[in-house]
Every structure is written in C-alpha cells, then in structure tokens.
Simulated assay, not measured.
Amino acid sequence: MLPALHCPAVHTAESLAREISQWRADGHTIGFVPTMGALHEGHIALVLKAMEVCDRVVVSIFVNPTQFAAHEDLGTYPRTLEADSALLAAAGCHLLYAPSVEEVYPDGFATTVSVEGPAIGLESDARPHFFAGVASVVARLFGQVRPDIAVFGEKDYQQLMVVRRMVSDLALPVTVLGVETKREADGLALSSRNVYLSPAERMRAGRLNVILRDLAHALEDGEPAARALEHARILAASVFDAVDYIEVRDADRLEIVGEGPLARPARVLAAVRVGKTRLIDNVPANPARRG
C-alpha cells in the first residue's frame, strides 16, 4: 500500500517567513485559511476557494488556548495532524503552518485585540472571552502569514463578521472572503464537534437546520420577526437539551432587527446543546425573495 501523502509543513514563524518571502519574490499572491485542525470537507472547501483566488495557499492548524474558557474542551479538542496533513495534500494545499503555542504566544506576549460591534451578544453571551481570543490569534497569524486573501466559513458567521470588522478597523491589508456552509445530507453543518454526538443525538442534531430554514422562510414570506422567532424557539426547546439562542440579526452588521417583517437582508443564527455537545448554525433570510 502506498504511504499517505503529506502537505509540506513548517512549524516556526521563521521558516514560514522564508517560504512567504520566496513566493513574494516569484510574484505569487497568497491565500490563507486559519483552522484549529480536525479537518473535514467544510475546511477543504475553504482551501479550494483560496486556491481558486490565489497562487499559493497556507493553512494553519493551531488550537488556540485564548478562545477557550477554563471549563471548555481545550484539552479534549480533537488533534489529528497526520490525517489533516494528508487531506491538505490531497486538496493541493501548498503549505501547512502548524506552530506551537510558544511560537504564537512567545514569552512576554502581552497584547490582545478588544472587539465590540458584531462581537456583542450571541456567542459572547455564553462565551464572553471568545472573540477577543479569536481576533487576537487571527491578527497574530495575519502578521506571520501576510496573506492577500483570507478565507473563513460562514458556519461561524459571527466570527466572520468580527474578523471583517477587525480588518476594516485596523486597516489590515487582507481581503476576507466567506464560503457557504458545507452540510451533511440532512442539513447538519459539518463541524469537528459532530464526532461527539451519539447516534440518537446525531438524529436530533439534524433538526437544527430544518428549524432555522423554516424560520428563514417564514421571515421571507413576510411574517413578523417576533412571531416567527417565538414559534422557532418553542419548537427548538422541544427538540434540544438546551437552547442558548435563536436570533435574527442584520446580515451585514449583526445588529438586532425589529419585531416586524424584515426590511433588509438578515441572518438567522442559533446555538443549541444536544447532550454535552454545543452546536451552532445560521442561514440567510432575504426579504427580496418574497413573491
């Protein structure tokens, strides 16, 4: 049996800089996909998009400790570097950057990025530490990779909006692209945490996207947001072990929309718990689709 292919990899910022400098000297544009590993088809879709728009693509794998609270799953978060490298090689990725914690946060590191705007509410209500950790590590990785284009998934829609806001506010020379969520046959968004679901939990998890789609369709048909949300929340509470939130927000700025019919493009976002697993998802709702 042939040995599995592996993506060329570097583990230090110094080695990464040498590769990037050579690519720049050769006139190449650089795409970047930051990940925490445990890669699946959703991640590979981001890599393929980056390859479509750039000459060279770097994927980082770094389980970022600053976005986990003490009670969260940092220690048990899946780490599958060998399998991830093989997936990236099969996709044609040019370089894997897999730094240590010390390489990203060296001794004496003392700077974080404070975020508001689209970071307020939703995920921040349950995880108030989260987006400062995300913004800080993404800014740090942007500085190390120096990409022209960075690609993020729409599954983490609030994260995408936070990164876009940070890039705009700090005038970072990076274009941020979003890629539509990849899903299982029943609509469940692909996620590294789906492996935690038991078979019975997995069946219930598939209902999340159905509930969100139905809510989005009701909004697009002109139903007042308050009434449509109430119905969706009652249904979700009957299916899942806990509902952290189901909300309708403005699609561009994540501002709260009014209680009446939609007047502008929106995003329906949710976080629920199935057993011990927390799942997030979102779908668009566009009043322009009416009629």
Rank of each mutant, 00 (worst) to 15 (best):
M1C: 06
M1K: 14
A4I: 05
L5N: 12
C7F: 09
H11S: 12
H11I: 04
A17N: 13
R24M: 07
G27R: 07
G27L: 06
G31H: 11
G42Y: 01
A45K: 12
C54T: 13
R56C: 03
S60V: 13
F68R: 04
A69R: 09
H71M: 06
L74R: 05
T76Y: 00
T76K: 07
P78A: 01
A83P: 02
D84V: 05
L87T: 00
L88Q: 03
A91W: 03
C93N: 08
L95W: 06
S100N: 01
E102T: 00
E102M: 03
P106D: 01
D107H: 12
D107R: 07
D107S: 12
G108Q: 06
F109E: 11
A110R: 09
L122S: 10
R127E: 12
P128S: 01
G133M: 09
V137S: 06
V137I: 14
V138I: 15
L141M: 14
F142N: 08
P147F: 01
D148K: 11
G153W: 11
D156K: 14
M161W: 05
M161A: 15
V163H: 00
V163A: 11
V167Q: 13
L172H: 08
T175M: 07
A185F: 01
L188K: 10
S191L: 01
S191F: 07
V195M: 11
S198R: 14
A200C: 08
M203P: 09
R207S: 15
R207H: 15
I211K: 01
L212F: 07
E220W: 00
G222R: 10
G222C: 02
P224V: 10
R227E: 14
A237D: 15
V239K: 03
V243R: 03
R249L: 14
D250S: 15
A251L: 14
R253M: 10
L254C: 13
V257L: 15
G258Y: 13
G260P: 07
P261F: 12
R267D: 01
T277I: 13
R278P: 08
R278G: 07
V283Y: 12
A285H: 08
R289G: 02
